[in-house]
Design a protein around this nucleic acid. Structure first.
Lengths: 177, 177
DNA sequence: TATGAATATGCAAATTGTTGCATATTAAAT
DNA sequence: ATTTAATATGCAACAATTTGCATATTCATA
């Protein structure tokens, strides 16, 4: 289970609320981590019980109150150890490919429409990631050095999305052929 | 839940046992579907109860007996409907990227060693997929046409692995820099 | 002035997936 | 002769994830 560590690694960068973390997952880290808000709030609760994080309540003038979590030294140590240990390669379960594998049971137009919907999503995603990259590249040397590791993961997102789109174009051609 | 449909789509191509399906997942479809044997056997049981598949017991001279499952008309219909309905884009949770995101908490050698391990896995995977592709390309026109949709998913595997390796090479450079 | 979107958090139930344990046969290797 | 690998299936407990429900505020829009 690494939702726990995904949360810790984000809080290690910067304290934040469950809602902040969710925004991060949705808007920035979606290409490598996804979770529902219920799961995030549950984990935050548990991580606080385990002493890996702690929180302060913050009243806000214009918005509902929020719990701002930050990582504890015990949390940093836990994270450090997890990062040092080997991890199994990422498990992939992709329903779209299951569908395409059985494409002969559907009709061409349906498959192409479905593919088109997915292409839209991935195109938007790629644009977002490239925009983030442009921002990072506008930073000065010191800031870029500080963002080195997140940048590596961002590149994975970008190369991954481009490869996905290249494949989708191939897939369209084969289906139409 | 699409493990159910991943199993149905395989049985629609060809009847097989739980063990056969597992071999498929491990050796051929690992780039788009993964499952443990316990889960596969459970699902097979449930799918049989639901009437989507049925089985015959086959005694084998040299090996333990096996249950050979095949899809029923109800199963094909269920699969057809599932394929026709839109599906949400694939959810990605990649622990390796979580690790790299927090790379500043580890040391360079550890990160590079970890990356090397993953590169080995992906390289092997790519070679296997390219070998399968060569086999498919040696088939005659009619057979290739019949394998059109599985071939599209195979291409996803190949392009995906190549992109992964390209990224890994970039990552090594950035870490070493 | 209602309606929806964004912010903010959470419980409970159900489903899905993993881990640990268990068994039995045959072929090949040591 | 014994061990290991491959074949073949399964239960039970536990962990992780999803779905459904629930609440409350503020801002912008219709």
């Amino acid at each position: 289970m690494s939702l726990k560590h995904a949360i810790l690694v984000m809080l290690e960068t910067e304290p934040g609320s469950g809602y902040d973390l969710m925004r991060h997952f949705r808007q920035r880290l979606g290409y490598f981590w996804n979770a529902k808000h219920q799961q995030v709030y549950q984990q935050l609760k548990q991580l606080a019980i385990d002493g890996y994080i702690e929180y302060t309540l913050e009243a806000q003038a214009d918005k509902p109150d929020k719990k701002v979590y930050s990582i504890t030294p015990a949390g940093v140590e836990e994270l450090r150890q997890w990062i040092a240990a080997p991890v199994a390669p990422n498990k992939i379960n992709d329903p779209l490919l299951v569908k395409l594998y059985g494409g002969h049971l559907s009709d061409r137009d349906n498959l192409l429409a479905e593919l088109e919907r997915h292409i839209d999503t991935h195109r938007r995603r790629l644009q977002e990631l490239e925009a983030i990259e442009q921002t990072l590249l506008s930073f000065d040397k010191a800031e870029q050095e500080a963002m080195k590791y997140p940048y590596i993961t961002l590149r994975r997102g970008i190369l991954g999305e481009r490869a996905w789109l290249d494949w989708a174009a191939e897939a369209q051609q084969i289906i139409n052929k």
